[in-house]
Amino acid sequence: MRWFWFDRFTEFESGSHATSVKNVSLAEEQVHDHFPGAGTMPNSLILEGLAQTSGMLVAEYYDFQERVILAKVPRLRFHLRAVPGDTLIYRAKIDSIEESGARVSVTSHRGEELQAEAEIIFAHLDRHAEQRQLFEPNDFAKLLRTFGVFEVGRKPDGSRIRMPAHLAEAEARYRSQAQA
């Protein structure tokens, strides 16, 4: 199992910005075990949620063909502790994006309050240096559906973001193998 550190996207504009939601629950082990007796969402995992939100946004720009990895967090600041019952709203905005990587600004809000803010640098791994995939394509396609990328995702012209052909083909292959 992988850990997913946000629940779903609520806004996603290709090449520009995205918003996602993270509901903090006492049912999550990391929340009740981090500081026993004082339920807290660990800051490191809030950063991971911000990175997952913005990493998806960066990856979509190149049709999920690049292998996007978090390379650096030049700036990170937490203003509030996130506790069970909180709904965190993660916002990511692309400042720069190019062939070799991207720079994004991210924030986490609890209601109107700024909970955390950061800058993140993503690098695109060289496609030719190593062929190992970061995700199995069918699993990745499922993940994108789970996060609601295609429900809320829009291109700058307002048209819907659709499953890229290479991932749709992987899903079709998986279905036909499962039926065989």
Partner: peptide, 21 residues
């Protein structure tokens, strides 16, 4: 090495220039 990507992004923004790879 990864800092150079960060530096390039900052210079591009600060000076409104494009730095080709």
């Amino acid at each position: 090495s990864i800092d150079f990507l960060d530096i390039v992004f900052r210079l591009e923004k600060s000076f409104d220039i494009k730095i080709p790879r």
